[in-house]
Amino acid sequence: MKPKIAVILFPGTNREDESLRAIEAAGMDAFLFRWNLKEDITPFDGYFIPGGWSYEDRIRSGAIASKDPLMQKIKAEAAKGKPVIGICNGAQILVECGMIPGLKGKVETTCFNKLATVNNSTSGSVASKVEMALAPNLDGFWCFWTHLKNSAKTSRCAFNKLYKQGVVFQTPIAHGEGRFTTKDPAVVKQLQENDQVIFQYSTKSGEINRDFPINPNGAVLNAAAICNKEGNVMAMMPHPEVASFNKQLPYFEGHSFEECEQLAPAHLIFQSMKKYIEERKK
């Protein structure tokens, strides 16, 4: 049976078409799951939170969606080890609710704890510290192609199982708030020690360079995608779902129709997701 993935539609999501397509192309069944559906979300094998600007990005990108009851349910499923990928606005949501980088060792989130503190003063729980944020780019919204390097070890997370370490591939960005940042040097150190920075912005040859436009937003460690400590949740700013087929790559010319329709390197992220689910089931 094919793995079943819920692609989440929040009000304001705008990347659902290509996200559904990328999941299907990886040999999984994709279902569009609207934020206010009454159906149970637990039977799915994995979750995909696509890009857009959920809830108008009021307050901050992803801030309101991270407090949607649906995210609490997804968080609970993630705690069972199910894979969750958030791309662009989806990444912002995962960071906002503390699932990324999730250094507390549990998939406990800062934001729900905070809510709990506010709502239930008798609980005595203390809001944990915000570990990371996706801050505004140093120079506003940009949409262009970047090179990403798989810097982590193969299979470090659910989404890089099929990438050799050091391999470079192309993926476009389209965001205004994609700068992974933290004020805590200890978090940076832990991310490195834990090998949590999966993809880094790099040159075509894999050199990590902080200059614009190689690093398009000023992200710490040139981070384009960061996973949680357990490796089943990943927040990624660039858009592999629109770099999934060769035809979508820049200047992919002079090839047959069949070659154009073949899967591109960025799509290995979704194929890795499938492999992860299948291995977990065994």
Binding site: N14, C143, A174, H239, P250, Y251
Partner: peptide
């Protein structure tokens, strides 16, 4: 580059690369 030119995933030639843009709207 300030505009989203890839969303929907149907773009083949985005603005700037050629005299016209191109899409394959039926995946």
């Amino acid at each position: 580059d300030r505009y989203d030119t890839h969303v929907l995933g149907l773009t083949i030639i985005p603005p700037g690369q050629a005299d016209a843009g191109l899409m394959a709207p039926l995946h």
